[in-house]
Design a protein around this nucleic acid. Structure first.
Lengths: 332, 332
DNA sequence: TTGTACGCGTTATCAC
DNA sequence: GTGATAACGCGTACAA
């Protein structure tokens, strides 16, 4: 039967004890230099690989982090995952990645399954359905921790990494106003998504400061498709700029205007959010509010590890930035 | 100290042996029905979670699959990962996801680290640098297996899931010819990428069959940016359609034509490859060759598991399909 | 049907 | 400096 080499194999090959091998391989020893050499050589020769499961069983450290996102294929989460991967690799951790498909039930089940895998902690972006994180409350009792990222949840049990959505909206609002716009149409995904509400409120805050009327607010889950929303309000002449919850909506808006022959940005401006790659590929190219997804991923990992090791690390700057492209008309 | 409940805890709480608990929890028992009930109730009460590491140590089955992709954040791989996640979850497996950053050295190191985690098998999309998979050869001796996906490697040691790139190119070529195009410009990433060469050769095969001259072939890594390539050959009037290695290049091509005022598809047609979401967001919307990334992910998982369990499963159809949008001019 | 005893691979403790 | 031994949580052959 095929089997991977263990320290026992190394020990018996060299006629020493397993504990000696273990110590040498972990550098916890000031052994006989000659022996150290021999052990390391034999380990290489036998193609030895430490068995993390056994090690974890003994030490209660698995160097495993569990991650739950609504959808891996979504490029927003994919970018965050990428940052997590980079940070965790630098720190010698591996990632166990799962997707909840926006289902709270599945989230529950995944948490259990991750605990079963002995992860040291869990990073989770809650599903749209999830409005409390009671199912995570058992974690601290197990010596594990969690960090919530992206989606905002009101409970303050676990640390929480998210972009300052309101600040992002505010930034966008200031920019649109400075470029001469007066009537904003906001298109969101759903009023239930707190991030969207925060972005909208940022826009309105900027408008308030200039004594302009609030955004016309609309949401895809209640007010119809982007096209329908645009056409409906267009007839009323209700907006000179469209503030979108994210770039996907922004791209849809631009595509619609292209189709019906409305010139962007000459006749109407469009501003996205998130600064995803697709901003470069619309015509005109979509201006957007950038949030560093990569940094968010890195920060989620370091925050979790700090929690577990009770250390303190630097916090990264994830303040929103405006990325100007060609979808917003400049004051002439 | 905080500790998660074990079968030992359940056993002592109920004053039975651990083996009884183990048997009941695994359903390998026709125990006293009353006892079964009590054990299950106690397990729930203590919030018991099986320790997969310990179980894996004993049974040599960890229900873990290791995955190595060049870049998680890339939405092409993200989509494949999504399919893998779906398939593996249905089969009770968890995914350990790593990224190689297109580095062969890192791939090597990741394989070792995945073996250390006791994964049952490895799914890998080799990096651009990787032209042999010798570093995977040790796997079978360890009772583990691997499945290569996406990127083509010439060695036939492990099964191999990839799209039929040549067939995809052929499909695209036939389509462009049928729409009245005669002179094709192909823009690839790098001549070293076998997938690109296969796609190009598919285009040329279609052209050959109609006695038309081969594509003008260019590659971003040697011939300059997409814009430079387009302008250079445009002046020579060398093409009436641009066949792109992937949709990203296609989007760049469309954006460039929009910028210099060349009408797509009236003056020149553009065809992408992969049918990624961004096809919907260019103007005009980008026609493309679809490969089902999700299915590829699913298939990689089922193929690996079949290999490990020596079972046989259905093969999914991942034949390329043409997705018509608005970037290719139709014969008038 | 149930309990006892042992081993999976590793590390920590304590002798020597 | 090195080796025997126990322990981590679990599954299972074997005995009862």
């Amino acid at each position: 039967m095929k089997r991977v080499a263990t320290i026992k194999d190394i020990a018996s090959a060299l006629d020493v004890s397993t504990s000696t091998v273990s110590r040498i391989l972990n550098g916890k020893n000031q052994s006989n230099a000659q022996l150290v050499k021999e052990v390391k050589a034999m380990a290489r020769k036998l193609n030895y690989q430490v068995n993390t499961a056994a090690k974890g069983l003994r030490t209660n450290k698995t160097k495993l982090i569990g991650i739950i996102v609504p959808e891996i294929g979504d490029d927003f989460f994919a970018a965050i995952l990428s940052g997590m991967q980079e940070a965790s690799e630098e720190l010698g951790y591996n990632l166990l990645v799962c997707q909840s498909n926006e289902s709270k039930k599945k989230e529950n089940q995944l948490v259990k399954s991750l605990i079963a895998c002995n992860v040291e902690g869990i990073l989770i972006a809650p599903s749209k359905e999830t409005h409390n994180i009671n199912f995570l409350k058992g974690l601290p009792a197990l010596g594990k921790h969690a960090v919530i990222f992206d989606r905002i949840i009101d409970q303050e049990v676990f640390p929480h990494i998210s972009f300052d959505d309101e600040q992002g909206g505010y930034l966008g609002g200031k920019y649109l106003i400075a470029s001469g716009h007066r009537k904003l149409l906001f298109i969101g995904l759903s009023e239930a998504l707190k991030n969207g509400v925060a972005r909208l409120s940022g826009y309105n805050k900027a408008l308030d400061e200039s004594d302009l009327p609030n955004c016309t607010a609309s949401f895809l889950d209640t007010d119809g498709t982007a096209s329908e929303i645009l056409d409906h309000h267009w007839q009323e002449g209700a907006y000179d700029a469209v503030a979108c919850y994210n770039d996907l909506i922004g791209a849809q808006v631009i595509a619609h205007f292209n189709e019906i022959g409305v010139k962007v940005p000459q006749e109407v401006s469009v501003l996205g959010f998130d600064n995803r790659p697709l901003c470069e590929y619309t015509f005109p190219r979509l201006s957007s509010i950038e949030h560093s997804t990569n940094k968010m991923g890195r920060m989620a990992v370091t925050t979790l590890l700090d929690l577990l090791n009770e250390t303190e690390s630097e916090t990264l700057d994830i303040a929103p930035k405006l990325v100007e492209r060609n979808s917003v008309r400049q004051r002439s």
